[in-house]
Design a protein around this nucleic acid. Structure first.
Length: 520
RNA sequence: GCGCCCGUAGCUCAGGCGGAUAGAGCAUCGGCCUUCUAAGCCGAGGGUCGCAGGUUCGAGUCCUGCCGGGCGCGCCA
């Protein structure tokens, strides 16, 4: 049995199927039972009426007073409206982007950045204490490859020429790194120096892009630190101590199949080095040890194969870490299209489109809004033609425009020598009984629930869809009614209402990392 | 072959722990600016919710099978 928000305004504000569910055991018809329930309901200042509809639903209609009270809360709480204490201050680490410093961030990282940051903000709004964390490999085979590529470029060796490393990075940015290294008068023969320079250079470039995206991480974790501080050795020792390892073909394996993985995994290769699986496990042990009882990893679905093995490794260590740790939010790939054709290359990176490209083409707000607007597990098609040449059709403008329009109304008010009496407006909010006013109020008061559900379901896109609906209710109201009327009580009430809309839009866009302009 | 995800309007997608006539944007067609920004509003057309079974009072939603697409699959990360 449920009580839920009615989908259709004709069905009131809330509906319950209680009579449908109980009809059988009560041996009465659903409608008859519903009538009896309605007749027995106590009076409430918040419920205007309850009526039986359809097969036996009971629909509840809220009183204008109920709405007026909620509007008052929006004004009272301001930017805190929509927040809750659901998380009770629990610490949670959200790991995302986590790109290795081997090149510019690509559009997939962009999706992850938009998704991870919005999810983090949502969790913060629900009372969690969130750490945004970025993990990267600064010492592995990929980094070696990067160093060799930069070294080759510094020696004026181009991709494909003799001396170019096997599977070297061919992007144009490698030339930039090589040139900067020479300018800094680095020793080209010192591969360690080249490596350190290249990693620092590209990390710095990534951070610039992330900053431009409005994103800052609290913690950067380096894979190399796991080797240095003993975490990795401890993890290996723990795995061996678990008795779940065995030697085969010269390598050390872990029976991850005992913990739900579909194949056993190699811990230590036959050449004595470790697979990436080991630092992954060691890294997640550090999350647990740092006190994070909740860890969420935002990753591309191409990494979904790692989930079972990381969890299996953590289970094998018997540290009391729950089976579902860490939690994963996977997102599907991003495909960029232009003229109906997939775009796979960019000047700077060569083989992929960069986050920077997207920001340059359509702006940060649109990239943020777009990339978070679809549920994570659906493939995303980013149509450059639509985003660029038809930028006025961008849904982000639709929402931002609603915000700017309210600002404009307030400017008009001042220009006419009038002032808003906010307290009077809230006191007379009971006057907001028009169809459009009720629709706006109904949309407005859903916000806290939307945030809670979006946070619990790890679904930031729900906020995007909500904001579009709220903006639609507002624009409709705007076109149908004049706010600045002579009747002062009504004028104040209407202005209090639209300021409430502006507040909620600002709050919602803020969670998504999108600006809320005063004018457009 | 096995695993995860997706399949809803011409296109891009919401709805998905079961509920009432399946929604939005874009595109198409038709209306609305002497009045707070027309980046807006109103209306119309457009659907066997991939297919077939099953569970249920009720299935786009849950279960099974199949078809189509994406991603991944023992010492790469």
């Amino acid at each position: 049995m449920t009580v839920e928000r009615a989908r259709d305004a004709k069905h009131g504000d809330f509906a319950t199927n209680v009579a449908l569910r109980l009809a059988k055991s009560a041996r009465r018809s659903p409608r008859e039972l519903a009538q009896a329930i309605v007749a027995a309901l106590p009076a409430s200042s918040l419920i205007a009426r309850a009526e039986v509809a359809g097969a036996g639903f009971i629909n509840f209609f809220l009183t204008p007073d109920a709405y007026a009270r909620e509007l008052g809360r929006i004004h009272e709480l301001g930017e805190r409206y929509g927040c809750s204490a659901l998380g009770r201050g629990e610490r949670v680490v959200v790991e995302f982007v986590s790109a290795n410093p081997t090149g510019p961030l690509h559009v997939g990282h962009g999706r992850q950045a938009a998704l991870g940051d919005a999810l983090s903000s949502l969790l913060e709004a629900q009372g969690y204490q969130v750490t945004r964390e970025y993990y990267y490999n600064d010492a592995g085979a990929q980094i070696q490859n990067l160093a060799l590529s930069v070294q080759a470029r510094a020696r004026a060796v181009a991709p494909g020429q003799p001396g170019w490393p096997k599977d070297g990075y061919a992007g144009e940015y490698i030339q930039d790194v090589a040139r900067e290294f020479r300018t800094a008068q680095g020793d080209i023969d010192d591969l360690d120096a080249v490596r350190a320079f290249a990693v620092a250079y590209l990390r710095n470039e990534q951070d610039r892009d992330l900053k431009e995206f409005g994103l800052e991480f609290d913690v950067y974790s380096l894979e190399s630190s796991l080797y240095r501080d003993g975490s990795l050795d401890a993890a290996v020792a723990g795995l061996i101590a678990s008795g779940k390892t065995y030697e085969s073909e010269g390598a050390l394996w872990l029976r991850t199949t005992e913990y739900g993985d579909d194949k056993d995994r190699v811990v230590r290769k036959s050449d004595g080095s470790f697979t990436y699986f080991v630092p992954d496990v060691a890294y997640h042990v550090t999350k647990w040890r740092r006190g994070f009882r909740k860890a969420i990893n935002v990753q591309g679905s191409d990494h979904h194969g790692t989930i079972a093995r990381v969890r299996a490794g953590l289970q094998a260590l018997s540290l009391g870490i729950p089976q579902g740790y860490p939690e994963y939010l996977l997102h599907q790939m991003v495909k960029v299209t232009r003229g109906g054709e997939e775009v796979k290359i960019s000047k700077r990176a060569g083989s992929y489109v960069t986050l920077r490209d997207l920001i340059d083409w359509v702006g940060r707000d649109a990239v943020r809004f777009f990339l978070v607007s679809r549920k994570a597990d659906a493939e995303f098609v980013f149509d450059l033609d639509l985003a660029r040449s038809r930028s006025e059709d961008n849904p982000v403008y639709y929402v931002q425009y609603a915000h700017a329009r309210v600002a404009s109304v307030m400017k008009q008010l001042a220009a006419r020598g009038l002032e808003l009496d906010r307290a009077a407006g809230l006191a007379s909010a009971g006057l907001l009984t028009g169809e459009h006013e009720q629709a706006v109020l109904a949309a407005l008061v859903r916000y806290p629930e939307v945030l809670e559900q979006a946070a619990l379901n790890r679904a930031p896109h729900a906020v995007v869809h909500y904001l579009r609906e709220l903006a639609n209710a507002f624009h409709t109201y705007y076109n149908a009614e004049t706010f600045i009327v002579d009747d002062a009580p009504l004028r104040n009430a209407r202005l209090a209402l639209v300021l409430g809309v502006q507040q909620v839009i600002r709050n919602g866009l803020g969670l998504l990392g999108v600006s809320a302009p005063e004018g457009m």
